[in-house]
Computed example of a mutant assay.
Amino acid sequence: MQNPVSGSLRLLHIDASARLGESGRDPHGSHTRRLGRRLTERWSAARPHDIVSHLDVGRKPPRPVDAAWIAAAFCPPERRTLEQRAVLAESDALTAAVLAADLIVVGAPMYNFGLPAPLKAWIDNVVRVGLTFGFDRSRAGEPYWPLLAPGKRLIILTARGDYGYDADGRLASMNLVEAGLKTPLAYIGMHDSDTVAIEYDEFADERLARSIAAAETAVDRLVDRLASSMAGR
């Protein structure tokens, strides 16, 4: 990670693919890792003073939520035991990274229409009462409210075996990847998002090649647009 520079932004890049290589470089490599590397490299070239960090939940899945985690998370911080603090240590670190980030880039391949299990575990670890969302049952109106600072942005880089998962596509109703990320992250305050997708992976023909090329172009244009809009920040 780079040292902070005045005016620099923080980009958190998360990989979740079970495939550890990259398509185009490694046999049976990951398309989302390929897009993630392309995006972060282009971002760093455009904004070299920004701070880019990498979290690979595909290689090192976060601890899933269990009874001990729930008991610790919902215990008032001042009353937590040393054991409960240890249980939440990983979640605390993951949550701190989200709170610090201005831009979160998530490589999220579609597995059985939804998110990879390690990525769902990451979500469960960072949607934290008192840290990323507030709750007060006596509050007038909505008892829940987001705690993330405004202006954070989500970029989803996804890959699908079939095709037609975009809005109004033949399989749009079966696309649980984007909803699975956008809904919980909007709940804690991250409302702005962009998605770039590769499709036709299972067909492995010229349609896949065209989809990869189109996605890489879309990544380049997205970086150029966002980097330009954030000039001076």
Rank of each mutant, 00 (worst) to 15 (best):
N3H: 10
R25T: 15
R34P: 06
P62W: 01
A72H: 03
P48C: 09
R19L: 11
L94K: 14
I70T: 12
H54P: 03
C75E: 00
R63W: 09
G7E: 12
D56V: 01
L94G: 12
S8N: 12
L88K: 00
R47F: 03
V98E: 11
L39C: 10
A93Y: 11
V87M: 04
V52I: 15
A67N: 09
A46W: 04
T40V: 14
Q84K: 13
A97Y: 04
G24V: 09
P61K: 00
M1N: 11
H28F: 15
Y111E: 02
G7H: 13
L35I: 08
G21V: 07
S44A: 14
M110I: 10
S6M: 09
G114Y: 03
T40G: 04
R80W: 00
D92N: 13
A71P: 02
L9D: 02
P27Q: 02
G36R: 01
S44W: 02
I51V: 14
S53I: 08
S6Y: 02
H13R: 10
L39M: 15
P27M: 00
E41F: 03
G36A: 06
A108W: 14
R63N: 11
L20V: 08
L103H: 13
N3G: 03
A101V: 07
F74H: 08
E78I: 03
H13P: 00
T95A: 13
H54L: 12
Y111R: 09
R37M: 13
P61H: 01
S44D: 10
T32R: 05
E83R: 02
R80H: 00
A67V: 09
A73R: 14
A73G: 10
A16M: 04
G29C: 07
A45K: 14
A46I: 05
A71D: 06
A108F: 15
N112F: 03
Q84G: 05
L82H: 06
A101N: 07
C75A: 08
G36N: 06
G107A: 08
C75I: 00
R42P: 00
L39F: 13
L39D: 08
R59F: 04
A72Y: 04
A72D: 00
K60G: 10
A73W: 15
P48N: 12
A96C: 09
E78R: 08
A67T: 09
L88A: 05
A73N: 12
S91W: 01
H49Y: 03
L9S: 13
A86Q: 14
P48S: 12
S53L: 09
V105Y: 07
H54R: 14
G114I: 06
M1P: 12
Q84N: 11
R34D: 11
R25E: 13
R79E: 05
N112C: 10
D26W: 12
R80P: 00
V52G: 10
P64T: 01
Q84I: 10
R25P: 13
W43M: 02
S17G: 05
A89L: 11
A16F: 03
T95H: 08
A89P: 01
F113G: 07
R34M: 14
